[in-house]
């Protein structure tokens, strides 16, 4: 009985669902607070993202006349579902190991594209020209960062796979287990190019400056989100909070999933690692940069992260015999 219920528990409460949402909103709160401090501001209270979400639930929501209303209303649900499923796959060192039945690294890679797809569908269905521009930009951005992301994941999968006697392992549990036994990959110089590649991918994946091009407020008025209001907008916020946890959690899993032991301590350690990763790759980056143009972002990704990713792959393959 309990065995049968556990997927639901995992999906709705822990580590997906409520826990991931709370985690994501907390991360966002910290992000806003730290950004405020970097700009000599006091900033909103840490719980502001929670408050915003509750507020949106109390607001009317409207569908623009030009929109294809059904698609428009369903798009955020698709996004949230995708991310909730993705959250299931993220192992929390010492606390939770996802069952192999839920999926592996490759499934996660696909699920990570769901929010962008949801935004694209929503933007296209909204009937606003800005939504349409947002759509095409979102698409270009995906094309740009998916390559380096794949290369970074592949590097880790190969590293772990080769070391454990196979070719490449896409099992997240396996990746965690390997690092718990042999130390975090973060401290292996061979993996550093992969780490940097992944760091480059995070801001684009999460859609923050300098890569918030599809949602650029001052250019195309928040693009796909322009026409959303009330609960639907709230759902998109939930989606982006979940995505925050998934992407950062993935980073932690890939490179530093070690845990100190003890349930609460491990949980706190996981959240702390996410926070550090976020401040380094999101908050500081978005505070210190301006937005790039889509063509600049595109060529940037095809130059540096792509090259680094390839380098990392070569490095992993060439060093396998001399551990």
């Amino acid at each position: 009985m309990l065995e049968m219920l556990s997927p639901f528990f995992h999906l709705l409460l822990f580590p997906g669902g409520l826990f991931a949402l709370a985690c994501g909103l907390l991360l966002k709160g910290v992000d806003r607070k730290v950004a405020a401090r970097l700009q000599r501001r006091i900033g909103p209270p840490l719980h502001q993202p929670f408050v915003d979400l509750i507020k949106l639930w109390h607001k009317d929501s409207s569908v623009p006349e030009t929109a294809q209303s059904r698609v428009f209303a369903w798009a955020p649900h698709v996004g949230v579902t995708g991310m909730a499923l993705a959250a299931l796959l993220i192992p929390i060192g010492g606390v939770y190991t996802p069952s192999g039945a839920y999926g592996d690294l490759l499934v996660l890679l696909y699920l990570l594209a769901v929010p962008a797809v949801a935004l694209m569908i929503g933007g296209a269905a909204s009937g606003s020209p800005f939504g349409a521009i947002g759509f095409s930009r979102e698409m270009s951005m995906m094309l740009a960062y998916e390559g380096p992301l794949l290369l970074a994941l592949l590097s880790v999968a190969l590293k772990v796979g080769l070391a454990t006697g196979g070719v490449a392992t896409f099992s997240l549990a396996e990746i965690v287990r390997y690092q718990q036994a042999h130390g975090a990959l973060l401290f292996d110089p061979v993996m550093w190019p992969a780490v940097v590649t992944f760091l480059f991918v995070i801001p684009a994946n999460l859609g923050v400056v300098p890569f918030d091009i599809p949602e650029a407020e001052s250019e195309i008025l928040e693009g796909p989100l322009l026409e959303y209001s009330g609960k639907e907008l709230g759902l998109f916020q939930i989606m982006s909070a979940l995505k925050m946890v998934v992407v950062l959690g993935l980073g932690v899993t890939l490179f530093c999933p070690t845990a100190p032991g003890g349930l609460l301590l491990s949980l706190a350690w996981f959240i702390f690692k996410c926070l550090v990763l976020m401040v380094a790759s999101v908050t500081v980056v978005r505070s210190a940069t301006g937005r790039l143009r889509i063509d600049q972002a595109f060529s940037f990704y095809f130059k540096w992260p792509e090259a680094l990713g390839v380098a990392s792959l070569i490095l992993v393959l060439t060093t396998r015999n001399f551990p």
């Binding site: 970097l38 501001r41 300098p210 918030d212 001052s218 505070s287 210190a288 301006g290 937005r291």
Partner: peptide, 16 residues
Amino acid sequence: LGHIIGFDSLFKHVME
């Protein structure tokens, strides 16, 4: 100009 290129910190710095 800073605001438009999404460079929020620069915008705030100049405005300050």
